[in-house]
C-alpha cells in the first residue's frame, strides 16, 4: 500500500493540512503538522496569480514569493521532508504555469525524485489532462482531481477517471477560506462521489475549526482538508508560527480522528 492509501486506511478520517511553501519556517511548520497529527500534507506552490484562493492564501503566496522562494527551493523542502518523515504522504498543490513551465516530464521527474506522492493542480481540468496527467502517471505520482458542487453526473466520470490517491471535494462553489457549506449538502455530495469511485474523498474549502472538521468527518468523508486557518496563523506569527500551527493541528486531528461516520 502506498503512503496516500495508508493515510486513508487508519480506521478514522484523515486530517489533510495545507501550508504555502516558503511562507514562514516551512520545515518547522511541516514538522509541527506531522507532530500535531496531520495524516496528509499539502504543500502549496506559490504563484503570482492564485485565482482560486481567498485573501489568506493569496497573502501567503505573496509573502513566499516576496521572500524569493523558487521552484527549486520547494522541491528541496519536499526532499528534506521525505528524509525526515519517510511515511507521511506529501502532495504539492498549486497552479498550472509553475508546474508546466519547464515541461510536465521535468516536473513529474522532480516530484518523483523528491518523494512527492501526489499533485493537485487547480487550473487543469480533465479537458486539458494532457498538459500534466500523463507525465505524472508515468512517474508514479498521483494526480488528485478536484470535484465541486458544479461537477454534475455527466462530468463526474471524466473528473474521476485518471484521478488517483484521493478525490478532493471542494465543498463550496467559491475560493479557499471563505464560507462553509452546510454539512447536509456535504454528506450528500460525499455519498454521491463514493457511489462513483473507490478513491477516498477528502473535503475542503472553508473548513476552519475542529468542530467543522469533526462534523465533516462524521458526514462520511474519508478526509478533511484545512488550509486557510493554518496559513493565517503563519501570517500572524511569521517565523514563530510552528507552535500555534501545531496546536491547531492537534485540535483538528483530535476532532477528525475521533468522529464516527454517521454519528
Amino acid at each position: 500500500m502506498n503512503r496516500l492509501a495508508s493515510a486513508f486506511a487508519k480506521g478514522h478520517a484523515a486530517l489533510v493540512t495545507f501550508i504555502t511553501a516558503g511562507d514562514g519556517d516551512t520545515p518547522a511548520l511541516l514538522d509541527a503538522l506531522v507532530a500535531g497529527g496531520a495524516d496528509v500534507i499539502e504543500l502549496g506552490m506559490p504563484f503570482t496569480d492564485p485565482m482560486a484562493d481567498g485573501p489568506a492564501i493569496q497573502a501567503a503566496n505573496l509573502r513566499s514569493l516576496g521572500a524569493g522562494t523558487t521552484t527549486a527551493d520547494i522541491l528541496a523542502m519536499a526532499k528534506a521532508f521525505r528524509a525526515r518523515h519517510p511515511a507521511v504522504p506529501l502532495v504539492l498543490m498549486g497552479y498550472a504555469n509553475p508546474m508546466t513551465t519547464r515541461g510536465s516530464d521535468w516536473f513529474a521527474a522532480q516530484c518523483a525524485a523528491a518523494g512527492v506522492d501526489g499533485v493537485i493542480c487547480v487550473d487543469i481540468p480533465p479537458e486539458e489532462d494532457g498538459e500534466l496527467g500523463p507525465a505524472l502517471r508515468g512517474a508514479g505520482i498521483s494526480l488528485i482531481r478536484l470535484a465541486t458542487p458544479t461537477s454534475d453526473a455527466a462530468r463526474l466520470p471524466m473528473v474521476l477517471g485518471g484521478s488517483s490517491g484521493f478525490v478532493y471535494y471542494v465543498s463550496v462553489a467559491g475560493i479557499t477560506g471563505k464560507q462553509q457549506a452546510a454539512v447536509d449538502s456535504i454528506a450528500d455530495a460525499v455519498a454521491r462521489l463514493k457511489a462513483a469511485t473507490d478513491l477516498p474523498i477528502a473535503v475542503g474549502f472553508g473548513v476552519r475549526t475542529p468542530e467543522q472538521a469533526g462534523a465533516i468527518a462524521a458526514s462520511g468523508a474519508d478526509g478533511v482538508v484545512v488550509g486557510s486557518a493554518l496559513v493565517e496563523l503563519v501570517g500572524q506569527h511569521g517565523a514563530a508560527a510552528a507552535g500555534p500551527v501545531g496546536e491547531l493541528t492537534r485540535a483538528l486531528a483530535a476532532a477528525a480522528h475521533g468522529a464516527k461516520a454517521g454519528a
Binding site: 498550472a96 487547480v122 481540468p125 478536484l146 470535484a147 458544479t150
Partner: peptide
C-alpha cells in the same frame, strides 16, 4: 472543437467553472 489554436488557447480553469 476543444478551443485550441494550434498549441495555444484551451480551457485552463478550476473545475467549478468548467460546467459553466
Amino acid at each position: 472543437e476543444r478551443g485550441h489554436f494550434g498549441q495555444f488557447g484551451g480551457r485552463y480553469v478550476a473545475e467549478t467553472l468548467m460546467p459553466l
